[in-house]
Simulated scan of single mutants.
Amino acid sequence: MANRYRIGLIDGDGIGPEIVPAAARVADQALAAVGREVDWVPLELGRTTIDKYGTAMPEATLAALDDLDLWILGPHDSASYPPEHRTGLTPGGVVRKRYDLYANIRPALAHDGVHATNPDLDLVIVRENSEGLYADRNMARGTGEFMPTPDVALSVGVITRAATRRIAVSAFELARSRRKHVTIVHKANVLSMTTGLFRDVCREVAEGYPDVRVDDEHVDAMAAHLVRRGGRFDVIVTENLFGDILSDLAAELAGSLGIAASINTSATKAMAQAAHGAAPDIAGRGVANPVGIIGSTAMLLEWQALRSDDMALRTAAENMRGAIGETLSAGVATADLGGTASTASFVEAVLGALEGPGR
């Protein structure tokens, strides 16, 4: 039915079973208000499936994802897995590679009511997600790291024209819906062939977007700029490792990694996954911050809205973000933001905000 969507729901490890269902609750209420419904498809991966099936990434889960275009993935804590399950791809790595989720979109927004090092921050980091120096992404077989001797370790970084072009297009298309400004981040003064290629291909793509202002920065200078003058940036496009580091920095400058939303997309599939990890030290205590995964779920709905031309989904996504903002502005916050709210009480406050005027 046109008004129903099937979305996978994967709790994952650590705080995942606390925050992922919370995101589904918020999405259900926001969607019901605009006449849309979700058939949630519960799926498993992570530590519990190692105990049940002997693998962190069950084939049944992958088979189900093959038939889904949208899913929410909770964090995984592969560092806690038994030693024999720590080699090879992580569950998230398997999913990214299998479905070629090449674009990792990570906004950083400073909210009223949240103490932010940079209160003017409102930017999006568009991170190339399929290659670079990440060993689980840059080889057809095996990894990109190897040791010719026990005392020497080497890593292969891969930058291709094709992958750079498609992430650059994603960045420039996004910029057209925002403030029409793209900053290309690289390190071409040292890594002249690899990140130099990335910079140059992004500049080539920029020629097709004369309405978008373009500049570029070295990654070390960019880190300093984010701290001092992050409010001047709009869309930042960069390769994998740089994007991972800069997006975590931007999230903390905005207030906390716990509020950092993120989606991973291909041309046909999208996965909501908060930028933070599994936080095993607070798992089960009911104090985890659900803002990141709720915001990621809103991004997932917005991605589907553009793909299916269903603007009701965009309205639901905007209302979810608005309810998060109102809740934080009212001083309701979890401990990582200096508040006293539990996960459950924070979610109840967001649900209450969704019932406010205009929603």
Rank of each mutant, 00 (worst) to 15 (best):
212 V>I: 14
217 E>S: 12
168 A>Q: 05
232 R>Q: 13
205 V>Q: 07
209 Y>I: 09
207 E>Y: 05
167 I>V: 15
230 G>P: 01
211 D>K: 10
219 V>C: 06
224 A>M: 13
152 V>Y: 01
197 L>R: 13
190 V>H: 09
165 R>Q: 15
219 V>R: 05
205 V>S: 06
196 G>C: 04
197 L>M: 15
222 M>D: 05
181 H>Y: 10
156 V>E: 14
237 V>H: 08
165 R>V: 00
164 T>Y: 12
154 L>R: 06
169 V>H: 12
163 A>E: 08
164 T>D: 11
200 D>V: 05
162 A>F: 09
154 L>A: 03
235 V>P: 03
222 M>E: 07
248 D>W: 01
178 R>Q: 06
245 I>N: 01
221 A>F: 11
227 V>T: 13
167 I>Y: 05
190 V>E: 11
181 H>Q: 14
175 A>V: 06
174 L>H: 12
233 F>V: 04
152 V>Q: 12
168 A>R: 04
183 T>C: 13
150 P>C: 03
192 S>L: 00
236 I>L: 13
209 Y>V: 10
157 G>H: 05
190 V>F: 09
157 G>Y: 05
171 A>H: 08
233 F>N: 01
244 D>F: 02
198 F>I: 07
183 T>D: 04
216 D>E: 13
249 L>G: 04
218 H>L: 15
221 A>G: 01
179 R>S: 10
212 V>P: 11
223 A>K: 00
168 A>M: 05
183 T>G: 00
157 G>M: 13
150 P>R: 08
242 F>N: 10
164 T>V: 11
247 S>K: 01
160 T>N: 02
182 V>K: 03
229 R>Y: 08
184 I>V: 13
159 I>Q: 05
234 D>R: 02
216 D>G: 00
223 A>G: 15
211 D>Y: 11
241 L>I: 07
169 V>K: 11
194 T>R: 03
215 D>R: 07
190 V>W: 11
233 F>R: 01
182 V>Y: 02
158 V>C: 12
206 A>G: 15
202 C>S: 14
151 D>N: 13
176 R>M: 10
203 R>F: 14
199 R>W: 11
164 T>E: 09
188 A>V: 06
165 R>W: 14
242 F>M: 06
233 F>I: 06
148 P>H: 09
237 V>N: 07
206 A>C: 07
242 F>H: 10
238 T>K: 00
154 L>F: 06
204 E>D: 15
168 A>S: 15
202 C>E: 03
205 V>R: 05
251 A>C: 01
176 R>L: 09
248 D>E: 08
173 E>F: 02
251 A>M: 03
219 V>G: 01
171 A>P: 07
159 I>P: 01
182 V>W: 03
184 I>N: 04
193 M>F: 14
148 P>L: 09
194 T>V: 03
243 G>K: 04
248 D>L: 05
169 V>D: 08
158 V>E: 08
226 L>A: 05
193 M>G: 03
184 I>T: 03
163 A>P: 02
207 E>L: 13
186 H>Y: 12
